[in-house]
């Protein structure tokens, strides 16, 4: 266990940036998002939810999967072998860290997505424990401890004036060694302070819902009239899906000029009409009702059914805060039978 005074973080970041491309939460205009570290640009370590979740570093909104030349002869070039420069993410919250393990279930299952795997392998996550949940946080619902981030390589806990850092993986340990010059040894007092912060973090939830038994209950809810009511407010934008740390659906598109081109993978959203629209005109999800149902059923029933009971939600609250019409997963969990206590 090591530590550093918060006043000396610039020094830490300078060292980290020598180890790889360093990204951390930065405010630009009105928005806090992960951005490449720049000397003298202050990081925002208070805001819990960045605008976009860090999934964008593993699964970018746009990435070339294949390059081709189609003049005389067709030549295909695998673009995934270029993915995965050495990257360090600083300040990833526990919910977003947990979301990556859900993403892994999709992209690291056979057949493994090579670009994703390479990025995962070449990225070091320095998680930052939360001190106090926001009103829209409900990570606890999914057994995520806001003071811990087991999937991270390093865990930093803000004890007030210092960050106390613990290595949680081999990659994390290696990085700690490289940072020896700027870090101090933590004391037993720090250890106690870390425990206190962690314990306190889990106590401030305003939003308490339970998903116990929800996946099973939803097995029989596909035809429920509930969906007829729920969807009407939806304006079919992609805010919820694009801001979601576990949404992973994509489209493949061609970008070409002359005799060369690229096949590009880009985020897509089940909220959009053309998501399931087939060339012949048939659309198995013809109205917004089916699309809204698909999104929530995917998160709360299909995904758990495919992946050992785990829900495709980490309770980060981005959709709760950002949906223009306040139609979010919290509402569905509450109304479809998740037990409620608290507010």
């Amino acid at each position: 266990m090591k530590k550093i005074a918060k006043t000396k973080l610039q020094e830490l970041w300078r060292c980290l940036s020598a180890e790889g491309a360093l990204y951390l939460p930065v405010r630009s205009d009105s928005v806090v998002d992960f951005a490449l570290w720049q000397e003298d640009v202050p990081a925002d370590l208070e805001t819990l939810n960045t605008f976009l979740p860090p999934k964008k570093f593993y699964y970018p909104q746009t990435e070339t999967v294949l390059k081709y030349e189609f003049g005389e002869n067709l030549q295909l070039l695998d673009a995934s072998s270029q993915a995965g420069e050495k990257t360090i993410l600083f300040g990833v919250r526990p919910c977003d860290t947990a979301a990556l393990s859900l993403m892994d279930k999709v992209y690291l299952s056979e057949p493994v997505d090579e670009a994703y795997r390479r990025r995962r392998e070449n990225t070091v996550i320095i998680a930052l424990g939360c001190r106090e949940p926001e009103e829209t946080c409900f990570c606890q619902t999914f057994d995520i401890d806001p003071g811990k981030a087991p999937g991270a390589d390093l865990l930093a806990i803000d004890t007030g004036t210092e960050l106390v850092v613990t290595a949680q993986s081999l990659k994390g340990e290696e990085l700690l060694v490289a940072l020896n010059g700027v870090l101090q040894e933590a004391t037993s007092g720090d250890e106690i302070r870390v425990k206190d912060v962690q314990e306190q973090a889990g106590e401030g939830y305003l939003t308490r819902v339970s998903v116990h038994g929800l996946a099973e209950k939803l097995d029989t809810c596909f035809a429920s009239p509930y969906w007829d009511r729920l969807y009407r407010r939806c304006i079919a934008c992609g805010t919820c899906t694009y801001l979601c740390p576990t949404c992973h659906c994509f489209d493949l598109q061609e970008y070409a000029a002359g005799h060369s081109g690229e096949r590009v993978r880009c985020w897509d959203a089940c909220m959009f009409t053309d998501f399931t629209q087939m060339a012949g005109g048939h659309n198995p999800r013809p109205t917004q009702k089916e699309r809204v149902r698909q999104r929530f059923m995917h998160k709360l029933n299909y995904f758990p059914r495919q992946h050992g009971g785990e829900y495709a939600c980490v309770g980060c609250g981005r959709c709760v805060r950002q949906c223009p019409v306040n139609l979010d997963i919290l509402e569905v969990i509450r109304e479809m039978g998740g037990a409620v206590d608290g507010q």
Partner: peptide, 19 residues
């Protein structure tokens, strides 16, 4: 059955019927 598909390998997320 026929659904729109992009990846063919169970990742792009659009050809599901239930789980």
């Amino acid at each position: 059955l026929e659904m729109k598909m992009k990846c063919g390998i169970g990742k792009c997320g659009r050809c599901n019927i239930g789980d």
